[in-house]
């Protein structure tokens, strides 16, 4: 067996007859931020719960930090940090109390725990709120505290389950910064699940798209987007009568793609670079362009390509009007 921070092979989890996770294979390299992207109910959290020893796999095996998640569950727990979905934090306790409890749970000596806790609180900007009850924290503060709790023992592998769901944009960006720092500055391997395309795009070096319990695509975001195909150019011409003429010109640059009424769309075989040629060619035949728009594939297109559906809540990112080809 190799010594990857996270690896899984043929991981399956059934709940009764329902298969939540269906033969998932994973290999996360040391020092990587690995994104697990998928809609609600795709099996992200179930996979994370198996990898973090909270759930036994029905089939298959997984190793985290070099230990088997079933046989060496205790060793896995010692090596990992976990920030669970919904920031599972007792609202009746203060930030400081929770840190102290977490330190005890991780077996950190009292003196080390105190200095470490203070350091972490400062780092996540909660020093002032440390003795307030968590009930009074904002959503962003809770996530930051959750992150601090996950980091108290300096884990080698960090699991973040939907770390920014429900956060406002500012808090989200702050959390991203923190994850980047942990990864680049400290070399922590991070597995994060998300349903946000942008988050996966921004943070993850590599992503796996999961749908219906299966991994449907895996790779670097840029590669995945390139695999979906060429960028789409959408052109609207001023005079209605010139539509056919324009279509003929565009056909020279690639295959026509479905588009809304009055709009022409073409997949640019030559990539984004050929856009200037299109403008010139249209100009040469005297067509006046009303608007022109270049759409490069997003992770949503990757998702749509793999599943035939758009990712929930991502309608604004993709374009609804040409109907996912």
């Amino acid at each position: 067996m190799s010594n990857l921070p996270i690896e899984a092979s043929g991981l399956v989890r059934r709940f009764g007859t329902f298969v939540a996770v269906d033969h998932v294979d994973l290999a996360v390299e040391p020092g990587e931020v690995f994104g697990f992207l998928g809609p609600n109910g795709a099996g992200k959290s179930t996979t994370v719960r198996m990898l973090t020893t909270l759930l036994t796999p029905s089939e298959g095996s997984a190793r985290v930090a070099g230990f088997d998640v079933v046989r060496d569950a205790a060793k896995v727990r010692r090596a990992i940090g976990v920030a669970l979905q919904d920031a599972a934090i007792d609202p009746l306790m203060t930030g400081n109390e929770l840190l102290r409890l977490q330190a005890t749970l991780q077996g950190i000596p009292r003196a080390a725990a105190a200095s470490r806790g203070a350091e972490l609180l400062e780092r996540v900007g909660l020093t002032a709120a440390a003795d307030k009850r968590v009930k009074a924290y904002s959503g962003g503060m809770r996530r930051r505290l959750d992150l601090a709790l996950a980091l108290i023992h300096q884990p080698r592998v960090l699991f973040l389950d939907e770390p920014t769901t429900g956060l406002d944009p500012t808090s989200r960006i702050a959390l991203w910064e923190e994850v980047r720092y942990l990864n680049r500055g400290l070399g922590t391997t991070v597995l994060l699940t998300t349903q946000y395309l942008e988050e996966a795009d921004q943070l993850a070096g590599r992503i796996a798209i999961i749908d219906g319990g299966r991994i449907v695509r895996e790779g670097r975001p840029a590669e995945l987007k390139a695999q979906v195909g060429s960028p789409t150019l959408r052109v609207e011409v001023e005079a209605n009568g010139e539509q056919d003429k324009a279509a003929a010109v565009l056909a020279g640059f690639g295959e026509a793609r479905p588009a809304a009424d009055g709009v022409l769309a073409v997949g640019l075989d030559g990539g984004a670079a050929s856009m200037a040629d299109v403008v010139r060619a249209l100009d040469d035949v005297g067509i006046t362009v009303a608007s022109m728009e270049l759409h490069t594939p997003t992770l949503d297109d990757v998702f749509a390509d793999a599943t035939g559906r758009r990712l929930e809540g991502a309608a604004g990112d993709g374009d609804g009007d040409d109907g996912a080809g």
Binding site: E119, Q154, R156
Partner: peptide, 26 residues
């Protein structure tokens, strides 16, 4: 969030982890 502290080396890591004993957790 500021980038203070935490810049401990990996070698330091295990020193933070004592044995987790039952009684203190109880």
């Amino acid at each position: 969030m500021t980038a203070v502290g935490l810049e401990r080396g990996r070698a330091d890591h295990d020193s933070l982890l004592g044995e987790t004993r039952t009684w203190p957790v109880v």
